[in-house]
């Protein structure tokens, strides 16, 4: 990492720590964690950590809703806003190239978003470990949450770098998230019910869509035989094993992080 990249990342991180979004998201995540702590104990005493699988699925829902958005908003603003107010022009007039600026921004954003996510997750993890959830499961869940956050940092920053305004970048980002999180899946369900598209398309969609890959990874981590996912899930586990599916889901997420990163780096930052 060049000095310029580190300097720019530090600047991005410092600005995130001053921003309201960082603290607002952190507080929301901590509150969600506290909610989990309050919900979990009564149930967990009955039948170990399996008692709150439903609560864990609730946390997954929460993560699907919040983590992409808390990464998208600041990432989508990072370049486009500076382009709008002239800071980017000033920055690129310095002896750094566009790629370095991009890398610095990505790194700073990644660290700040991950800090916020980690803060909230620590509360959930503490409660989960206290109630007997295996530490490996907690770690796996954290890795998936972190990867999901990084996917939307990469996507958001790339959109920000190709959009003229912050509003456009944010709108594009939210639209993509909506397609990934709900609309695409709803469309596929409709196609399955009405047109009878084959089951492998359901699996394929879950593996190429980062939001679905996250859900798949988390569900398989929690429920090793994937019977929660019905006949398709059970058949897939029999063929690939829970570990294999987990790796595929993680690889899909990592692929999106890399794709977003390289798309932006390759293009570089232009005015």
């Amino acid at each position: 990492m060049s000095g310029a990249v580190g300097l720019l990342a530090g600047r991005e991180l410092a600005s995130a720590l001053r921003a309201r979004w960082f603290w607002a998201y952190s507080v929301i995540f901590v509150l969600a964690g506290v909610g989990f702590v309050v919900l979990a104990p009564g149930d967990a005493a009955v039948y170990g950590y399996r008692s709150f699988v439903k609560a864990l699925v609730g946390v997954v829902h929460l993560a699907l809703l919040f983590v992409p958005l808390m990464a998208l908003f600041p990432a989508a603003a990072a370049v486009a806003e500076e382009r709008e107010n002239g800071v980017l022009e000033y920055l690129l007039a310095q002896p750094v190239d566009g790629g370095e600026v991009y890398a610095g921004k990505w790194l700073g954003l990644a660290v700040s978003v991950l800090s916020s996510v980690t803060l909230g997750f620590l509360v959930v993890a503490g409660a989960a470990l206290w109630r007997g959830v295996p530490w490996l499961l907690v770690l796996t869940l954290y890795l998936f949450v972190a990867l999901l956050a990084l996917v939307f940092v990469s996507l958001g920053l790339w959109l920000s770098s190709v959009s003229a305004t912050r509003a456009r970048a944010t709108t594009l980002g939210i639209s993509i998230w909506l397609v990934f999180a709900a609309l695409g899946t709803l469309g596929l369900m409709l196609a399955f019910v009405r047109l009878g598209v084959p089951e492998w398309l359901l699996v394929g969609w879950a593996l190429v869509n980062p939001v679905e890959a996250f859900r798949l990874g988390v569900v398989v981590a929690v429920d090793g035989d994937a019977s929660l996912l019905g006949p398709v899930g059970v058949a897939l586990v029999e063929r690939l094993g829970a570990l294999g599916i987990g790796f595929l889901a993680a690889a899909s997420l990592a692929g999106w992080v890399a794709a977003g990163w390289w798309a932006g780096r390759w293009r570089g930052l232009k005015m």
């Binding site: 829902h61 699907l64 369900m189 939001v211 929660l228 996912l229 398709v232």
Partner: peptide
Amino acid sequence: DLIAKHPALRWFTGSLAFGVL
């Protein structure tokens, strides 16, 4: 109801799509 009629759709358990639906 959808899952009962199309068991393969249980694949989407825990997805936001079901929540939206």
